[in-house]
Design a protein around this nucleic acid. Structure first.
Length: 878
RNA sequence: GGGUUUAUAGCUCAGUUGGUUAGAGCGCCACAUUGACAUUGUGGAGGUCAGAGGUUCGAAUCCUCUUAAACCCACCA
């Protein structure tokens, strides 16, 4: 006879089980087809893992992603869908490069320039490789069933070909262009930074008021003011009505007299200071746009290293900090400084990757024009015709608007539209070394863009690399074999569009929008049909997890301590899409307890079945309890399937836990001990329950499966259970038994009757007599009664109660605490009476006419039962 | 400045399209314990669903306002 250990030891099973899964090959759908796990023509279910950055190790946020996605994937695989989950990692250009530079500086005090491009890249690649290996091991520890044979790296050769192909195609269509635009330049990192990578921090800085001709202007950045020769004011500002747009005037300024021009523009805020400002188009985004609107000159004042240029005259070569004070001093000496506000608070822009202060600069960069028209090639998107002229912005709006992409939770559609409705051209070039090199070559004034370098000599390749999101935008299809070298890739044909993308809501605007852009343009398809956004995991106090706070929960540590299944459950149950959740070790421990509970239920069942069998027909129920448990089980099968398909993982897990712990362990197993032989039905329940749990808790369920059914069969590819037919839903009869047991237990506890003492009971069951008689054995055992006699009249001096129209009584034989008992009855009366009153009031009003019939009759029934209960209680009180 | 979310038991959260005397887990209190399981069992206490209006026969749920917290976006010199 096989027997399970007394407690589940996750450490003992997890690694060997993962190895069995991996060696089975079933992570790969091709193998599943080969072995008949799924049909070649089955529905597909595909998703691509949002590739973790190779900047280190996986954190708890990745663990959520892995748990949720693995749950979906395991469910669909068991259901017989042709299921593919593609793993990958991302080179994360700026983040990885910065990390390696930091390490180099910390350990060897060298910069990337000391090493040179080639050597530096070797270092980064080594670092990335190490990170990758760690990440893959962690993902395996989490139990993820990804198809490792299809793993990709965002910077590998295939992805590079995809990137070059996309770039060239977009360039030919005029969607990619090179142009002078203002960018967020980080002098420290010597690269530009995208808008979303800029952090704005509040900072106190002196706010200077200067005399500028007839006007008063103010600034926190006097060192940029050398190039200022325009004064801007709001067209409606009455104070300056006498000045006309385009008027010029002479005025004394930092390095002598200048000629300034008046510009009227609505960007000027009349409320701020004097309502007049000077502008520095080369070093301010807003000023740049004003200058663009009016066709004004732009002059560079600060160089790329953050030093003042020749235009600054005597200040040339100084750093920003140094020049600022000296310029103010000089203006003060000239009598042009009016006052200084030392309490002024402004937003300082810094680079979120490395913290350098952003100095806007106008530079030649590569851009994607999101509002440029192009001709649609080969569209499979509903409402977008092949040959039609449109823009990236319009398509991006359309695919979500028309419901071809669904975002869960729905409210994030607003974020999405907020972004695409205000779409700005996307700067895709970065002055970084780690990344996809831009496929553009220059010779004098000529520019060549191509998948391969030009044939003839003399060309120099653009030193810049592409924004990491450019390659990331292609992850729904580049890992599936785009562009295919010959003919169409079968993976692409079979698995694209993917069913779902699952990621944190914080990445919606970074990444998903880029995916929509690239995929709709290049493939004429949506990248995915559903976007499922999970929340962020915070610590038990609701703070973000961070190294500096020391509150990081490392997924590997807790997996080892509590078992991976416990960690997975704790991340999925009790959290809803788009909402942050809090995680604590106590929570994980409680799911460790649950895993052990499931183990022990199985242990009991194993001791009570004759021949463990995998493929069993649902057995015929013999008792009321059997009918009840099968009806509950079939309900759970239906609901769990529906919940998973609708992405309600928390609800599915909660329902399963309630079923397993309360109904199965708490009632059915206890009654099985009384009713005896239930081999077939217990086998079926165990079998089904393990299947239902498998997507959530793959290890413990597979461990039990192999102990019970042997190692020849994997639960991972066992067929998903089907709900039973011909099982009566009506469980009112069993409910009566449950309630009577609970009520008797309750009376015993309140009267301090020792659990070991057996009592005599009576029941006046009326029309329910046969149910009671058939199930007396249950009540006797679970409520610890010596006897339960059906009577016409409840005997005197016993304690009675009414449940669902049936009156029970227990003879406490003098052991009852009379005073205590009277108190209890009074308390019940006090709670029932107002309930009756409220029901009566309800039934006397418009409710009866206006509410649906079913609701009214339900309330009437409740009232009748409550009244009967009250009557009995009052009798007892006398 | 614009936008979003959250507010339900001591704690963490459920509560699907308005119809429960408002639920779960953890924690707490009492009792039990050689029997699948102390990583356990039984029973219990605990909430005027942030506040104020409104719609409705009926509101935790829909609308308006207020308060508090979190987040996102934006070119304030």
């Amino acid at each position: 006879m096989k027997e399970l250990d007394k407690a589940y030891d996750a450490q003992k099973y997890e690694d060997s089980i993962y190895t069995r899964w991996e060696e089975s090959g079933f992570f790969n759908p091709d193998k599943c087809i080969e072995k008949g796990v799924c049909d070649k023509d089955a529905e597909t279910f595909s998703l691509v893992l949002p590739p973790p950055n190779v900047t280190g190790t996986l954190h708890i946020g990745h663990a959520v992603m892995l748990a949720v996605e693995d749950t979906m994937v395991r469910y669909h695989r068991m259901k017989g869908d042709r299921t593919l989950w593609v793993p990958g990692t991302d080179h994360a250009a700026i983040a990885t490069q910065e990390k390696v530079e930091k390490i180099m500086w910390g350990e060897e005090k060298i910069t990337r320039h000391d090493l040179g491009r080639e050597k530096f890249l070797k270092r980064v690649e080594q670092f990335a490789q190490d990170s990758h290996d760690t990440i893959v091991n962690q993902a395996k520890k989490m139990g993820t069933s990804m198809d490792w044979s299809r793993e990709y790296y965002s910077l590998d050769d295939s992805r590079n070909l995809a990137v070059r192909t996309a770039f060239v195609e977009m360039y030919k269509d005029g969607l990619i262009y090179r142009g002078d635009r203002i960018v967020n330049w980080d002098p420290k990192m010597q690269s530009n930074v995208s808008n979303i990578e800029v952090d704005r921090k509040e900072e106190k800085a002196p706010f200077y008021y200067f005399q500028y001709g007839p006007f008063e202007i103010c600034t926190v950045r006097p060192e940029t003011k050398f190039g200022d020769k325009y004064v801007v004011m709001h067209p409606d500002d009455k104070r300056y009505i006498k000045y006309k747009h385009g008027d010029t005037f002479e005025c004394e300024w930092i390095n002598g007299p200048i000629t300034a021009t008046i510009i009227k523009d609505e960007a000027a805020d009349p409320e701020l200071g004097s309502g007049v400002m000077t502008i520095t188009p080369w070093h301010s985004t807003e000023d740049f746009f004003i200058a663009e609107r009016h066709g004004l000159d732009k002059e560079q004042v600060i160089d790329l290293d953050g030093k003042l240029m020749d235009i600054a005259g005597e200040f040339a070569g100084m750093s920003i900090e140094e020049a600022r004070l000296k310029v103010v001093e000089k203006l003060d000496r000239k009598g042009l400084l009016i006052k200084t506000d030392k309490e002024y608070v402004h937003q300082l822009a810094t680079n979120s990757r490395g913290g350098g202060v952003i100095e806007p600069q106008i530079m030649k960069q590569w851009w994607v024009g999101v509002k440029k028209e192009f001709v649609v090639k080969d569209s499979k998107i509903e409402g977008v015709a092949t040959g039609e002229k449109t823009t990236i912005q319009k398509i991006s709006q359309h695919v979500v608007h028309s419901g071809q992409i669904e975002i869960i939770p729905k409210r994030f559609e607003k974020n999405y539209f907020n972004w695409v409705d205000n779409y700005l051209d996307w700067c895709i070039s970065r002055q970084l070394w780690y990344g996809h090199r831009i496929p553009a070559w220059y010779r004098n004034e000529e520019v060549y863009v191509g998948i391969k370098p030009p044939n003839d000599d003399g060309w120099v390749q653009d030193p810049d690399t592409l924004d990491t999101w450019f390659s990331a935008g292609m992850f729904s299809f580049s890992p599936l074999g785009w562009p295919a070298s010959s003919g169409e890739s079968t993976d692409l044909k079979t698995y694209h569009p993917t069913n779902v993308i699952e990621t944190g809501y914080d990445i919606l605007t970074f990444w998903l929008i880029r995916m929509v852009l690239m995929t709709t343009y290049l493939l004429g398809e949506v990248p995915f049909k559903t976007v499922y956004l999970h929340g962020l995991v915070r610590d038990e106090k609701g703070r973000k997890m961070s190294k500096s706070l020391g509150n990081i929960i490392n997924p590997l540590d807790v997996c080892e301590k509590y078992g991976t299944d416990a960690v997975r459950l704790s991340l999925m149950i009790g959290s809803t899409p788009g909402n942050d959740s809090k995680l604590s070790e106590e929570k994980i421990a409680s799911y460790r307890n649950f895993a052990n509970k499931l183990w022990n239920i199985s242990r009991f069942i194993l001791l009570n079945i004759n021949d463990p069998a995998i493929d069993v027909e649902p057995p015929k129920p013999k008792t009321l309890t059997d009918v009840w448990v099968l009806s509950r089980l079939t309900n759970v099968i239906t609901q769990t399937s529906e919940d998973i398909e609708q992405y309600r993982f928390s609800q599915a897990g909660e329902r399963l836990r309630d079923f397993t712990w309360n109904e199965l362990a708490g009632w059915y197993v206890e009654i099985a001990k009384i009713e005896g032989e239930k081999s077939a039905i217990l086998n079926y329940i165990l079998n089904t329950t393990l299947k239902l749990w498998h997507p959530f808790m793959p290890f413990v369920t597979e461990a039990i499966w192999q102990e019970v059914y042997g190692k020849e069969n994997l639960l991972m590819v066992a067929p998903w259970p089907k709900s039973l037919e011909n099982i009566a839903e009506d469980s009112q009869d069993f409910l009566l038994i449950q309630k009577s047991v609970t009520k008797i237990r309750n009376l015993r506890a309140e009267n301090n009757i020792p659990p070991g003492k057996k009592l005599v009971g009576y029941v006046k069951s009326g029309s329910n007599t046969s149910v009671i008689e058939e199930n007396t054995h249950i009540i006797l055992s679970l409520a610890r009664l010596e006897s339960l006699t059906v009577v016409d009249t409840i005997p005197e001096n016993t304690t009675s109660f009414v449940e669902a129209g049936v009156e029970f009584s227990v003879d406490f034989a003098g052991a009852v605490d009379v005073e205590q008992e009277q108190k209890r009855i009074q308390k019940e009366i006090d709670s029932v009476s107002p309930y009756i009153q409220s029901l009566e009031k309800k039934l006397a009003g418009d409710f009866v006419q206006k509410a649906p019939e079913a609701v009214v009759s339900g309330e009437k029934k409740k009232l009748a039962e409550a009244k009967e209960k009250l009557e009995k209680l009052q009798e007892q009180l006398q």
